[in-house]
Computed example of a mutant assay.
Amino acid sequence: MPSKRRIRWAAVPVIAAAAAALAGCTPTELHGYLPGFDESGTPATNQTEQLASLWTGSWIVLLIVGVITWGLMLWAMVVYRRRKGQTGLPVQLRYNMPIEIFFTSVPMILVVGLFAFTVRVQNDVEKPWADDEVDVHVTAIAKQWAWDFQYDEATTGGETVYDMGVQAQPAADGSLERDELPTLVLPVDKKVTIDLTSRDVIHSFWIVDFLYKKDMYIGHDNSWSFIPTREGHYEGKCAELCGEYHSAMLFNVEVVSESEHEQYIAGLEAAGQIGDVNEEYNRLQNLPGTDGVEADAETEEGH
């Protein structure tokens, strides 16, 4: 039987090879091919790293458990298979307490452990910024089947500005002009709080690369606090089946510099898009090609 010294020396090249292989992986590969990472290694938000670690860590544990379980099953099938000439039932064993305790306690420990890690990460992600810590406050309003984004008290004069969107309009070949989608503009490295509300049915706010999604209900507003840490373009969508055109309920997210964000807010103010859009909302404003005036006229005709 090999000595412990020899086993240790044999493990050295294995560990070195594994370290070399991992060193050659891209950030995306190291995080289980999840979105939210690029070649720079900077995650999309301050929460993306821990969310990815929870996901990949859970899968590693589960795969290890699976390999052990499958190995024991194969070993039992081979070692205790029926031999040629054998008849009848094998010896039946019952009430092996050590094995029963092991098979009960280990799964419970795994479940409790995975639950504890999940709760820890979720509590960290769900922790809101204090009111005096928030740099940018946005209200994201879901509607069938588009999005409105309202930047609360965002102008230099403390005015609220907004951008109202319409649902995606794919071409006959299925292609889509993403520039025409509702766009949420956020400054990089700033503390952001997004209040999430719905106008009609249950929706779900999901920025894919941010690795987190939250439901939006009537009469129960949610919020999400985070820091965008990498400039760039990101895609968002509704993650809750919300009706006929659910698949067209898409939006863009642009994470830009602070100066670019200020210019965007100034542009909304110059365009006269000032105030709380909830106060004058009309459901028909969501229809492609209609503005507020046409929607109000159609409503009056309907009455």
Rank of each mutant, 00 (worst) to 15 (best):
residue 1 M to Q: 13
residue 6 R to W: 07
residue 7 I to E: 13
residue 7 I to M: 14
residue 13 P to E: 10
residue 16 A to K: 00
residue 17 A to R: 00
residue 18 A to H: 03
residue 26 T to N: 07
residue 30 L to Y: 01
residue 34 L to S: 09
residue 40 S to D: 10
residue 44 A to T: 09
residue 47 Q to W: 09
residue 48 T to S: 03
residue 50 Q to I: 02
residue 51 L to I: 10
residue 51 L to C: 03
residue 55 W to V: 09
residue 62 L to E: 03
residue 64 I to D: 01
residue 66 G to T: 06
residue 71 G to M: 02
residue 73 M to V: 13
residue 74 L to M: 15
residue 82 R to N: 03
residue 90 P to V: 08
residue 90 P to E: 09
residue 93 L to Y: 14
residue 98 P to R: 11
residue 103 F to M: 12
residue 106 V to S: 04
residue 107 P to F: 00
residue 108 M to V: 05
residue 110 L to I: 14
residue 115 F to M: 11
residue 118 T to W: 14
residue 118 T to P: 03
residue 122 Q to F: 12
residue 129 W to E: 02
residue 132 D to R: 07
residue 145 W to P: 08
residue 154 A to G: 14
residue 161 V to C: 02
residue 167 Q to T: 00
residue 169 Q to K: 14
residue 178 R to E: 07
residue 178 R to A: 05
residue 186 L to I: 09
residue 205 F to L: 05
residue 214 K to C: 03
residue 218 I to W: 15
residue 219 G to I: 03
residue 229 T to Y: 01
residue 229 T to N: 03
residue 230 R to V: 04
residue 237 K to A: 12
residue 238 C to W: 10
residue 239 A to G: 08
residue 243 G to S: 00
residue 246 H to Y: 07
residue 249 M to F: 05
residue 251 F to K: 02
residue 256 V to F: 07
residue 260 E to S: 05
residue 269 E to V: 00
residue 279 E to T: 09
residue 280 E to L: 07
residue 280 E to R: 13
residue 289 G to K: 11
residue 290 T to K: 13
residue 292 G to V: 10
residue 292 G to Y: 08
residue 300 E to V: 15
